[in-house]
Amino acid sequence: MRISSTYQWAGISPSHQEAYSKPLYRLQPQGGHTSEVREATTLLSVKRSPYQKSIKTKRQRTITQMREKGKNPEKQLSDEEILSMQEKDFRLLMLKMMQDIGNKLEAKMDNLQETLSKEIQDIKLKQEEIPNTLTEIKNSLEATNSRIQEVEEQISEVEDRLVEITEAKQKREKRLKTNEESLRELWDNVKRSNVHIIGVAEGEKREKKTEKIFQEIIAENFPHMGKEPLTQTQEAQRVPYKINPRRNTPRHILIKLTKIKDKEKILKAAREKKQVTYKGTPIRLSADFSAETLQATREWHDILKVMKGKNLQPRLLYPARLSFRFEGEIKTFTDKQKLREFSNTKPALQQILKELL
């Protein structure tokens, strides 16, 4: 677009050239002359003054300045210089200014068009990249979903494996517990006819045999049994075999009877007598059990002591069950947890056992 070309004389029609050649001060606006136009008309219609030569010199200087302004457009003419110009010079100035404005507009339009073209080109490039980006995102999402599915499958397999391991562990623990109970019962059966004598001094062994000591204990405490051929001893010895110098208490005497019935009669008689002695020294007779059974029975000792004080008639049943009378009924428990659950429903029993459970 070339705006400046439309204002050159070569492109203007004769009618327009005639209009441009008329003096500007003769143009009258609708509605009559304004005061400013009348004043300008009066001034321009006056005959040339004696100072015509000086005015002409001013005009020539103005034209020269205008030409310099064309070379240096940043300098502007003053209002007095513009008023002192002739019509032709003024029109030329206006055409020059309009041409400069057109050139500037054209340059700005060109710059704007170039900028818009670049932006449009960038937008087109970005639009072309969008499908590729969307495809990459889609592929990435598909790969992520695939990995998530693989991880979920692996987690599921691990969970299944953990369930299998847990079940196998529970079965193994159950089997181990069953084996331990079977071993304990077997060992208890082996020791079922044994009697432990606790509290006999070590010096007695040097003077008498262990079996002789047992016979004296029976004769001293249960004289009616000594006359009966019941208490036949199969084996008698101190346990352990070696003396521990760090142990202050005497070793136990282990008596193995031929009949289980004889052991039960002796222990029953000892419970009824409540105090068994050997040469006036208190001793204790007890059944012989495996270490596991003894440990299980020891856990009930404190509870047994408290219940005896409250006259609940507690007893220990084989292998390690607690039995006692409460509210006219006999209750039996295999472990403390079950006893605790039962005591929570019985405030009176809970008060008795509150420091033991």
Results as ranks from 00 to 15, higher is better:
E292D: 12
L267S: 08
K118P: 03
R206I: 07
G70M: 15
I63T: 13
F90S: 10
T297F: 03
G32C: 11
A320F: 06
S45F: 05
K174Y: 03
K69W: 15
T135W: 04
T6F: 15
K58Q: 08
K212P: 03
S35P: 07
S4C: 02
K69V: 14
R246C: 04
Q237L: 10
E329S: 15
E207R: 11
G31S: 09
I148S: 12
N244L: 07
L105M: 08
E207P: 01
R206E: 13
T64S: 15
A236K: 03
V276H: 01
K191M: 12
W9E: 14
P245R: 02
G203Q: 09
R26C: 10
T144Q: 12
E150N: 09
Q30I: 13
A236E: 04
D288R: 02
R175D: 13
N111T: 09
E153M: 06
V200F: 00
H252S: 00
K118V: 07
T178L: 08
Y278E: 01
P240A: 02
Q232Y: 12
L357F: 01
E167M: 13
Q17I: 08
M66I: 12
L357M: 02
M307F: 12
D100V: 07
S45P: 03
I165F: 14
G309P: 00
R91M: 12
E80F: 06
I330Y: 13
E220F: 04
A40Q: 10
K263H: 05
R247M: 03
T62G: 15
K305S: 04
E106C: 05
I130R: 13
D100T: 10
Y241P: 03
E142A: 11
E204K: 09
M97H: 03
L230Q: 08
S78F: 04
A270R: 02
E167G: 08
I55C: 04
R315F: 08
E18R: 12
I82S: 06
S13Q: 11
E164A: 13
F214A: 07
V276R: 00
L294D: 03
Y241V: 08
Q237K: 15
E152A: 13
K212W: 07
Q60W: 05
Q149S: 11
K174W: 02
V37N: 06
T135N: 09
L304H: 01
F289H: 07
G199R: 00
I260H: 11
L176V: 15
I283Q: 00
P50N: 12
Q65V: 07
W9K: 08
F333Q: 02
K104L: 14
K75F: 12
Q99K: 08
E129N: 15
F214D: 00
G328D: 03
A291L: 10
F324R: 06
S54H: 04
E18H: 08
K177H: 11
K96D: 13
L267F: 05
E341V: 02
T133N: 09
E272W: 01
M98A: 15
K354I: 00
Y241Q: 11
L176K: 13
A348V: 06
K71W: 10
G328S: 08
R238W: 11
Q237I: 02
P250L: 03
Q337V: 04
K256A: 10
L27V: 14
H196F: 02
R147N: 10
I120P: 04
E129Q: 11
H196I: 00
W187Y: 05
A236W: 05
N72S: 11
P314C: 05
H196V: 00
R271S: 12
K310I: 00
T135Q: 11
K88M: 13
L92Y: 15
D122A: 14
